[in-house]
């Protein structure tokens, strides 16, 4: 199977610091792929290059057979990559409905279709009761789900999730895991997630890439990765044994 997203020896430097150092990986269609690593490992930098916020210094990023490295975020979104932000940023003054409609407009031919798509996604993520509420009035778990809904409304082939579990309580994390699993199962959407919450990674990911000091130190199934001595050493800590 050819990769939906192929990252090939991508590097990014910030004033001499190698934030990402020749990282390569392939994400297959339908996969849930997690990138983990300690703070400052380069996860967010890698993510930003895929999303078009940063341009790689070296290497290529190919999405659905097309080079996307160096393209603008809106061009990348149009090609079928949806994303969420580490610090959630739904449009605060707009209602839940309007937030999601804006996402749906990307590939809808008219307002009617966008509204229909938006309502469908809002149902799916269980936000319908809050349809008319402004995003600013929602609690954090709802804001996170709203951001997910907005990204899904663009009908992405690949969903980039930047620490979507951060700040959630364990029960809320489990809910989010269930939502993502269901999405992946029913729509076949490919998911690339950056995550700190190992509980979520173990439950969701079929493949895990571990970054440390900008370099990939392990790549495999969650079970393989957590048993890898280098990963335990640098990230999980000896007590994880």
């Amino acid at each position: 199977m050819t990769a939906l997203l192929a990252i090939e020896s991508v590097s990014k430097r910030f004033r001499g610091l190698r934030a990402v150092d020749r990282v390569s990986c392939e994400i297959l269609p339908g996969q849930v792929f997690a990138v983990i690593g300690p703070n400052g490992a380069g996860k967010t930098t890698l993510f930003s290059m895929v999303a078009g916020v940063l341009r790689p210094d070296e290497g290529t990023i190919t999405f659905a057979g097309e080079r996307i490295d160096g393209r603008r975020p809106d061009e990348i979104a149009r090609r079928g990559i949806g994303r969420t932000f580490q610090n959630v940023r739904p449009f605060p003054a707009l209602s839940v409905e309007d937030n999601v409609v804006i996402g749906a407009l990307l590939h809808a031919k008219d307002m009617e279709e966008a509204l229909e798509r938006a309502h469908q996604v809002i149902w799916q993520l269980d936000l319908f009761a809050k349809l008319r509420q402004p995003a600013a009035a929602l609690a954090l778990p709802d804001r996170k789900r709203l951001e997910l809904a907005r990204a899904l409304a663009t009908r992405p082939k690949l969903l980039l999730l930047d620490e979507v579990m951060a700040g959630l309580r364990p029960t809320e994390t489990d809910q989010m895991v269930a939502i993502l699993r269901e999405l992946n199962r029913t729509t076949g959407v490919t998911i690339l997630l950056i995550e700190h919450v190992m509980r979520a990674v173990m439950a969701l990911a079929s493949r895990v890439l571990v970054l440390h000091h900008g370099a990939a130190i392990a790549d495999g199934t969650p079970e393989e990765v957590v048993r890898d001595p280098a990963v335990i050493q640098s990230y999980l800590g000896a007590e994880a044994l």
Partner: peptide, 25 residues
């Protein structure tokens, strides 16, 4: 109420998030 109007609101509220939704700000 048009698509363009919604895009304006998105850009007004958060330009970076608007770009991530495919809007050419």
């Amino acid at each position: 109420r048009s698509a363009l109007g919604y895009r304006w609101l998105a850009v007004r509220e958060d330009a970076e998030a608007a770009r991530a939704l495919g809007i050419n700000i």
